[in-house]
Design a protein around this nucleic acid. Structure first.
Lengths: 334, 334
DNA sequence: AAGCTTTGCAAAATAGAGAAAATATATTAA
DNA sequence: TTAATATATTTTCTCTATTTTGCAAAGCTT
């Protein structure tokens, strides 16, 4: 390992002078000395030691990305292409900002805070936290923090990036109603946050179209994959009574679709399906999935922009990005 | 930020004693002092500073995961569900080993080495590097390194984890031949490494079944997405002459499938398709994709195990994991 | 009681880099 | 010539934690 000191010894100056050449802030270095030092840096292959930098500068150039570990499914969250894509773009934009991404899959707020302290994180992006967790985190965490898909009460006190989940749900509610569906179920693995917004919008959309709707039509199937869900008799019977199912994510819908067909449901003839996200494969299955499209790249860019704005002392604000209903084949007219 | 020194001052001992309590190696501490220090650590919420640890211990507890940035497509590599899943599992197993994962998306060996030096990486996992790049990396990089899907000459001098790509290609060759296909193309975006192995196996499989086969049947379409590929007239005409296409990955096959159908190809009636990977959505599209399944979770586990074995001074060896042909609907009998 | 070991703890050195303060040298002005 | 002022570079301190060395006190043996 080549240190600044090694360069300094080689050239015959002090470490500070080398440091000044490396990021010539306050002080000047003679062109001659600078030239010699720069040559030595190149030749000896000096690379700054991040540990020392973290210690000396009291910042890390690391952005933590929190993925909540529900501990329910065995699969990592990244297996869902939505999260794969999201994290991929986050890394890309974080890298553009000359920072590094540390993926922190954790299961409670204390652990998030521990890690953030330990690594002296310059910023934190919280991806799929439950409302109570994210609320708790915002209350305890003093440093730059941006959340994705969080829905809390007092919008002034946090920065959140989300698509128009309510609007997406609303559009889907209107759409299913317009297609003549009266017996409809929304299926989530979560009754809070994003899924709740989508449900509220959905309910409103159905209601406005004079479709009778109650909270019983929001089915929560926590920790059960789309595949396994159909194996439960009570769910199967419930699905028999519906003409359409609205899944809170495409990943879920895609998993369920195949299982439903194998169990004997004819889709969309007997049962229409809709999803949310528009994954790359949603348009490839049969029937092609009707869904609400969100722009993941844009979401990631907004998130990183908002975080760096915050880190540079900018203003707090939250963002809502538009969604679009993509009508394909999985919803038929009744 | 609470330091060791703060704990020491609180209890009235030296920092050394607190350090000894935290990981009581060589030296002893009286039970009484130990108790007091432990209480203070808990109460004051001490969290070790990773920067200082990196500096003092000259190791980082970070595993770097290299994703090569081809710079060709605009999408991040993680958008491919294969990589999403792989990285997700890698993170999971790295975390199990009490380490952290740093995703390094880089575009050349010098940069990889720079980052590894800068972060003092305990270990490196190289994911999708070209043979010349990975060869270069193995030659220059002195610390624990495990590659995924690399195929080099002298197997003794590196550790590589891969599935039986040759065997998978071979099985597919035999299978397509057995299904009566004579005009077959393999499509990759890469003529080296994994894709080359799959091609070699494929060629052998076809050859053994007496299907005439030449290297012209390995079509390289670098930097072109499956969707865009079909837009090129010369490719379209080429495809018209085939009865089956074997794509080097499901992601590619899935992208192409939808585009092919929209261009007027009837699949599988006019043109059979096959892939490699068995993504979660490969069984959901229509027709369901016939493919070679690999176990990504196992691959990730093997990779992390091999790396930590190496870090602890274990032996070098490489691993080849089995694959399985999944016969579904996208290949018809001619 | 002298000499030894064990116990319990602390001081100092180390890791790599940044930042403030100090110092040396050269230039200009009085 | 001396003082003031730039310019160039070094010294010293700081960041947090580990590790090596040192040292006093207590306990044991002969």
């Amino acid at each position: 390992m080549i240190r600044i000191k090694d360069i300094a010894d080689q050239v015959g100056v002090s470490a500070t002078t080398v440091s000044n050449v490396l990021h010539g802030k306050q002080q000047r270095v003679s062109p001659e000395t600078r030239r010699k030092i720069e040559a030595a840096i190149r030749e000896m292959g000096y690379v700054p030691n991040m540990g020392a930098l973290m210690l000396a500068k009291e910042q890390s150039s690391i952005i933590g990305v929190i993925l909540f570990d529900k501990g329910s499914r065995n699969e990592p969250t990244l297996t869902d292409p939505y999260y794969g894509s999201l994290v991929g773009y986050l890394e890309q934009y974080i890298r553009d900002k000359k920072h590094y991404m540390l993926m922190l899959t954790v299961s409670n707020v204390e652990e998030i805070i521990r890690q953030a302290k330990a690594w002296n994180l310059d910023g934190l992006i919280a991806c799929n936290l439950q409302p109570d967790v994210i609320r708790h985190l915002y209350a305890l965490y003093p440093n730059p923090l941006v959340s994705l898909d969080a829905y809390l009460e007092n919008k002034e006190s946090y920065i959140n990036i989300a698509v128009d989940d309510f609007g997406g749900g609303y559009q889907m509610g209107r759409y299913l109603a317009a297609m003549g569906h009266r017996n409809v179920l929304m299926i989530s693995d979560n009754d809070q946050g994003v899924d709740h917004q989508r449900w509220l919008g959905f309910k409103k959309g159905l209601g406005e179209a004079k479709v009778p709707v109650s909270d019983k039509q929001h089915l929560l199937v926590s920790n059960i994959s789309g595949e396994r869900m159909v194996q439960y008799k009570r769910y199967k019977e419930l699905f028999r009574k519906q003409t359409a199912l609205f899944f809170s994510s495409d990943y879920y819908a895609l998993e369920a679709c195949s299982a439903l067909r194998e169990t004997g449901f004819r889709i969309p003839e007997e049962l229409s399906l809709a999803g949310f996200d528009d994954l790359f494969c949603s348009g490839l299955m049969t029937p092609k999935l009707t869904t609400i499209r969100q722009d993941i790249e844009q979401k990631a860019r907004m998130t990183v922009d908002a975080l760096f704005c915050l880190m540079e002392g900018g203003e707090k604000r939250d963002w809502v990005l538009p969604v679009e209903l993509i009508e394909r084949e999985s919803v038929r007219r009744v």
